[in-house]
């Protein structure tokens, strides 16, 4: 059911010209920016890191706006009542949507890597190719679960869109997707440590450059399971409250 649901939502999102264009074009622009910045900083040997980082930024944007607005979007489409009427736990209905946002986000990662290879001649030589693939899959699933937590908490807020708009750059920054965490103020460390994006980015970077991949993958998975648990609890609470107050279809 999870697999079929995810596939359905991936197909639906992939038919949206807006989603696909934004997932492809904006990360490519950001990757180009990163490439020129790294070149200007005499860091040509890190161009592949720039391409991977920019791609991951695109994945996060996809999850943030897709998952953050997952329930709201169903509400606007008039399908929220129908999916909530399904004789399954709410988490099993919403999780495929949020994982699908992570999967469609991979368009960004693939686009930035292809762009870097074709236009800038970046050699896609990963220190641990197999670990890179595993880390990418774990990262996407983890972001999907993080997205579930976002979806279930954002629905409680009237101004969730504003929060989503606010969270894009802070997570890019604090998670070390392009800027190393070491150059940030020390107080950002604990925040970074609890974010699955930080560990997902680290796992991908280590797989690219040749560091220890699996500890980061493990922590990323652990945090994402916590997100799943908290997201599930929150979603159940939200659903019961909405049923009791008859506000499911209301903003």
């Amino acid at each position: 059911m999870l697999a079929l649901g995810t596939l359905t939502h991936v197909k639906q999102m992939s038919h949206s010209p807006f989603e696909v264009t934004i997932a492809l074009v904006v990360p490519i622009v950001q990757a180009t920016l990163a490439v020129y910045l790294f070149r200007a900083g005499q860091e040509q040997h890190r161009l592949i890191e720039a391409a991977v980082g920019a791609g991951l930024m695109g994945v996060w944007s996809s999850v943030l706006f897709g998952s953050g607005g997952a329930i709201q979007n169903q509400r606007w489409q008039g399908t929220l009542e129908m999916i909530m009427l399904a004789p399954r736990r709410p988490v099993l209905v919403i999780l495929p949507i949020t994982v699908a946002t992570g999967l469609t986000g991979t368009y960004s990662l693939l686009a930035t890597l292809a762009w870097g290879r074709i236009l800038y001649g970046i050699r896609l030589e990963f220190a641990h190719p197999f670990a890179f693939v595993v880390a990418a899959v774990v990262c996407i699933v983890a972001l999907g679960m993080f997205g579930l937590l976002l979806a279930s908490t954002f629905v409680l807020m009237r101004n969730a869109n504003a929060l989503a708009n606010t969270l894009e750059y802070p997570i890019w920054l604090v998670s070390g997707m392009l800027v190393p965490i070491t150059v940030l103020p020390a107080w950002t460390g604990p925040i970074a440590a609890v974010l699955p994006t930080t560990w997902g980015a680290r796992a991908l970077r280590e797989a690219t450059t040749g560091g220890p991949v699996w500890p980061a993958v493990g922590v990323c998975l652990g945090i994402s399971v916590l997100c799943l648990v908290f997201g599930s609890i929150s979603l159940t609470y939200v659903e019961r409250r909405a049923r009791a107050a008859a506000t499911l279809a209301l903003a």
Partner: peptide
């Protein structure tokens, strides 16, 4: 808040590079 973090992102990236 969003634009402020955009600025901080590029300022820290610029510092690092």
């Amino acid at each position: 808040v969003g634009p402020l973090f955009q600025l901080l992102f590029f300022a820290y990236l610029g510092r690092q590079l």
